[in-house]
Nucleic acid binder design. Sequence first.
RNA 1: GCCGAAGUAGCUCAGUGGUAGAGCAACGGUUUCGUAAACCGUGGGUCGCGGGUUCAAUCCCCGCCUUCGGCUCCA
Length: 661
Amino acid sequence: MGFPRDFPQKTRRREPERVRSFLAIAVFRGNDGTMESAPPPSDPAPPAAAPRMTDLERLRHSAAHVMATAIAKLWPDAQFAAGPPVEDGFYYDVELGHRISPADFDKIEAEMKAVVKTNQPFERIVVSRAEALALAQKGRLAALGERALPSRYKLDILQGILEGETITLYRNGDFLDLCAGPHTMRTGNVKAFKLTAVASAYYKGDEANPQLQRIYGTAFPNKTELEAHFVMLEEAKKRDHRRLGAEMGLFAMDPEYTGPGLPLWLPKGAAILEELEKLAKETEFVAGYVRVKTPHLAREKMYTTSGHLPYYAESMFPPMEIREERRRTSDVGDAKENPASSSDRYFLKAMNCPHHHRIFAAAPRSYRDLPLRLAEYGCCYRYEQSGELFGLMRVRSMNMNDAHIYCAPDQFAAEFNAVNAMYLKYFEIFGFTKYRMRFSTSAPEGMGRKYVDEPALWKQTEDMVRRVLQESSIQYVEVPDEAAFYGPKIDVQVWSAIGREFTLATNQVDFAVPKRFGLVYRDRDNADKTPLCIHRAPLGTHERFIGFLIEHYAGNFPLWLAPDQVRVLPVTDAQLSYAQALVAELRAAQVRAEMEFSNDKLQGRIQRAEAARVHTIFVVGAKEQASGAVALRVHGKGQQGVKPRAEAIAEILAAIRNRSR
RNA sequence: GCCGAAGUAGCUCAGUGGUAGAGCAACGGUUUCGUAAACCGUGGGUCGCGGGUUCAAUCCCCGCCUUCGGCUCCA
């Protein structure tokens, strides 16, 4: 309970459904039971229930088989599991004594080329369960011939296939695999491919299962597109927030001294952080939020009450044990008076809500006080698994764009709607056009186990949320059985400029935890009632949000966010005082401005300013000084002509105020 | 946490069983310059950390840390 570790932090890319279906697999619901050839690449009608694939996916799926054929030839004891197409290519999971390393790629690719060259047809074969099992027992599936050991993963997959479903094999040359298809016509269709990575993956994604070697590759219809893909990847790498963050001096990671996952905000990054928080504060002020401030830690009782302990404990930093000397009690020889107790343990907070609940409880509340909207960009600490840390996107210390709205049931729809409107406002400001709201609901079978056992409340709340979503015509998808323990939630998924999808923000309804804290308000009928609580973080964590913004803008921030808003470059030292006066005027108006005069030529200084992504450059020479003007240059746009200084500064102030893009 | 790979100057990278180099950055000097790199010079590294092998380890071996690619997790 309590706020899921993913409250604002959710990065995992879900496997496309079709990938899972491959594991379940190899099934057509057709019923012919006869052998037939694979459909040609252009055939629009593979059996109706076959996995649907685009032409590109089909090509990549076939490439996966070509790769498996090559691997089976090089290492006949290879045990294959699943080999689907994925977003950027394909993979095949394999269990193998030999550790495949990138050094083996050349060898594997050479074998693949041989398979492509012989242009083997992909042949679709429908078999009975008994036939398939017999082949698997003989190690004949996902292999070039019979083997001493059974095809264990294929056998397992076969056992997962329901009675009555059609079982199909695909064969190319001697390579025979359990597979639902579809495939291209022949191996010769796999013209342009490349192996890209090797990693490990648990069989069926379950930690309890063996780890397999997952070999990734990609394939395209032709060499040109393949090469373009790698060029695109190189370009994407240049936008990576970890790289830009270092280049631009936004943040630093200091694992040795500060600790892994604990970013240091450098002055230029902190400037962005503060602009973001300024925006949020202004927006929330207008929307009737009030700001609070709470400590970074709390006693154990806070989290036993909230329910985070012991369940959530492993995601929290270990407790600080406060060992008081038992001075007085030891003096009188009665240590039992003051035994070390659990109340001597403090925890760094992993979420702000318990503290906010205590603020709610700090005074008697009337229905007149509701809705009460408590906002705080509290710094939370989560002990994320080491392998999960990822630049700013997954960190261990985070500022949440947090607020908790306590309201009565009849206020819920309006509050929830207002929160959604706030999300949309932000997206508009930042120019996010591609996002999706993911509405996670409960499932009846999880009641009392996975979810708080309040079926009526669940239904009521989910209906409310669904109605609000429909009425506001927000694009969303509903995902059953993915809700939080304490209520339904909405995650906002976005795609960064480099195509990475993750959850930026979460909006959750909580009808369980306020009760655990005994929170009540006195209603009109003079009865004490438990408020509903909406947890909302439209900017998620500021760390992740800025990581996303860096990639979204490729480091080229709009003026209001740009760490370097204006740089004044005097042409010669004769303009130093004029330049300094300009900087002073800009700073007096709260603009981040600086002057640079060095031994470099003007051209060199411009080059450096552009490389540093300074938003606006004022070049001032004798002419500008004489006329009280500035020569403007804007990052990405080049020279903008000469303007009177008052006009130039007024435009800058207006652009900052409007947060225009 | 798991599997694999990597860690050399602030950054990007080269290199060798005989204790290290380049470009950019930094610093100093010359140059007073008009829109994406003027010129000359200087300093800078416990080669991630700890063990081991060796006459000798940045290089070979082992352990650890961190990062990266995946996986798992993400009530």
